[in-house]
Design a protein around this nucleic acid. Structure first.
Lengths: 356, 356
DNA sequence: CTGAAAGCGCTTACAG
DNA sequence: CTGAAAGCGCTTACAG
């Protein structure tokens, strides 16, 4: 509509039928090279841009997309889910529908168990929150069957996925490390807590923290601990490390679970002997610790938009047949302080008047 | 398509023509109340949701939207413009086109001069970067003519605009104030620089900074200065204030222009006598000052998404005839440190793999 | 290799 | 108050 050129206009100018114009423009069926060239030239001259509405309406396509992800912790995963669903709402009239395949954790075992019971033939594509490197093999198999896969929230680089949509955990770690430098420019000893040392996101976040702190403060010492992503375990490890090393000035925990366990211990300490706590992710417990000045800063991954854009990028690619141009679409991790943490505590991302 | 219910199916079930179903569902023309009720009931039972593609395709509507904004500083405004254009790309097949009305500044005078030469009858709606309170009167006149107005980037609350899309400058100020507290928990004297004291955004940002700092540090003293949003003016005021008050520990400037002027002066001082600088907005000069450890933190407004979503919200409202449900759509202002400032220095928002 | 025609789901005059 | 029909711009069998 508007002033835009249509197939019909091109057909008239070229003296052919609109079916032929379609063949020239979309490479369907057989067409002689010279009429094709003629039509292509006219289309370019007139700046023809196809009307996607009409195109979508006439090809009554059905796309079935599977979403493989964990459903807990709910406080985090619900944001991912809502993002995916909102994107789906925008494109469901184009014939896209989805099926969520939830697992309890992102472990290889859990994900493979869920996937093995799946009739993958029903699906045209998958969105996968790739929890572990080994999922890459499954993805490669799927891709070999001609299906498309986009990873989101966590990535597996060495596989044939189309692209990744999510944070860069190393950069996010640098940012938190930068904050530690601002608050404790002369820290001597810092403890880094990881849920699992071999969890890519956790270890990358810690690597970022270390690199940022070391670059400003080369003599700092780091201790690294694992808490199995369980708050009680973090609490116990924290108690132990405080006994062994009473002079630690800062603690970083790579997940909200760890922040909570550590925060419990710190809250029982004398105010002037407390180490500063730097966390990851936002939930009500973390917010509470920030309010008490126990946790100084945390990081927000924007899971809603990770879900939204992974879904949107995948389905637009499938619908338009246009190639995906980038390997990674990075959602920047945001630094959250006491004062703005409440802005990130939304039951659903867009509630309360916040958009981004 | 898909499994979704169509007008035709409803028509068959109700034993009427699809024209009648359309009249029932969309309140067009005359229709007897009982057939209307019957059709509405069936539609609800079947969960009928109109196919917006088909709807848009058949009503060959043309919407003309005017965008009133300043075109400088370019480093900032280009992000707004690109956001608006990208949103437009997504909806131009729905028959929306736009016209930019650029002014040199956001002053009432400049904006009214541009607007007075405008044939407002051509337009269905306006997006306006409302620079001053007085623009509200013009907006009210436009709205009285039956046109829709959305404000973006800066707001005028007391007028009949549909909604505002942009930052909350007071909250953003709180965030920067929070950062000052973390770095200088015992600051005694802080200078606040505003481009213009009666600029709403600038004064709100400063109010936020003050409130946040005072809540943690009640005895702090504030000095307030104006620099007419000119770097050289900021530089001179800074030199003067350092003479009068050599013991200032922190400076906040409410715009990038001010940060640059102030940063020049600070860079010429001895390292150990330098006050810490906290800024606003991101550009190459601010990034340079951060790299030199002169500016400790700055705030990022996300102008790209302000432009994108203001355009998207306005046009979706016009196209769908659905009411806008919120008065304000807030884009959260992000805290930027030395380490991540480069992630925000993009020629165009989505370049370099960053999405959000 | 090319054309004519039906159809996607909706809207909009036009009859009656 | 209601129906039948044309049309939005494109795609897709089906003829030729």
């Amino acid at each position: 509509m508007n002033n835009r050129v249509t197939l019909k206009q091109i057909a008239e100018l070229a003296g052919v039928s609109i079916g032929t114009v379609d063949r020239a423009l979309n490479g369907r069926g057989r067409i002689s090279t010279d009429t094709k060239q003629r039509i292509l030239k006219i289309a370019k001259q007139l700046d023809y841009r196809p009307n996607m509405l009409a195109s979508s309406l006439s090809k009554k396509r059905k796309l079935h997309i599977g979403i493989i992800m964990s459903c807990k912790p709910e406080e985090f995963c619900n944001h991912l889910i809502h993002g995916v669903k909102d994107a789906l709402d925008e494109i469901s009239t184009y014939g896209v529908n989805t099926e969520f395949i939830f697992t309890d954790t992102l472990s290889y075992k859990d994900q493979m168990k869920a996937v093995s019971m799946l009739d993958t033939d029903k699906f045209d594509a998958f969105l996968v929150n790739a929890g572990s490197r080994s999922v890459g093999d499954w993805i490669d198999g799927i891709v070999k069957d001609g299906k498309s896969v986009v990873t989101f929230n966590t990535d597996v680089e060495e596989c044939n996925r189309l692209c990744y949509v999510g944070e860069n955990p190393y950069s996010a770690g640098l940012l938190v490390g930068n904050m530690i430098n601002e608050i404790l420019p002369k820290a001597k000893k810092i403890v880094l807590f990881m849920g699992f040392k071999d969890n890519y996101s956790h270890s990358e976040r810690c690597r970022g923290v270390k690199d940022a702190v070391r670059s400003a403060n080369p003599n700092v010492k780091f201790l690294e601990l694992e808490y199995q992503d369980v708050a009680d375990s973090a609490r116990q490890k924290m108690e132990q490390v405080l006994k062994d090393e009473p002079d630690i000035q800062a603690v970083f925990a790579a997940s909200a679970t760890g922040v909570w366990g550590i925060g419990q211990v710190v809250s029982e300490m004398q105010k002037d002997s407390r180490p500063k706590v730097f966390g990851y992710d936002v939930n009500h417990k973390v917010a509470e610790l920030m309010d008490l000045n126990i946790c100084q800063a945390t990081a927000f991954q924007d899971p809603y938009w990770q879900g939204y854009y992974s879904m949107k990028i995948l389905s637009e690619h499938l619908l338009s047949k246009q190639p995906i141009t980038r390997d990674k679409y990075i959602i920047r991790t945001k630094l959250v302080l006491k004062n703005n943490v409440k802005d990130y505590l939304l039951d659903r991302h867009q509630y309360d008047g916040f958009l981004l």
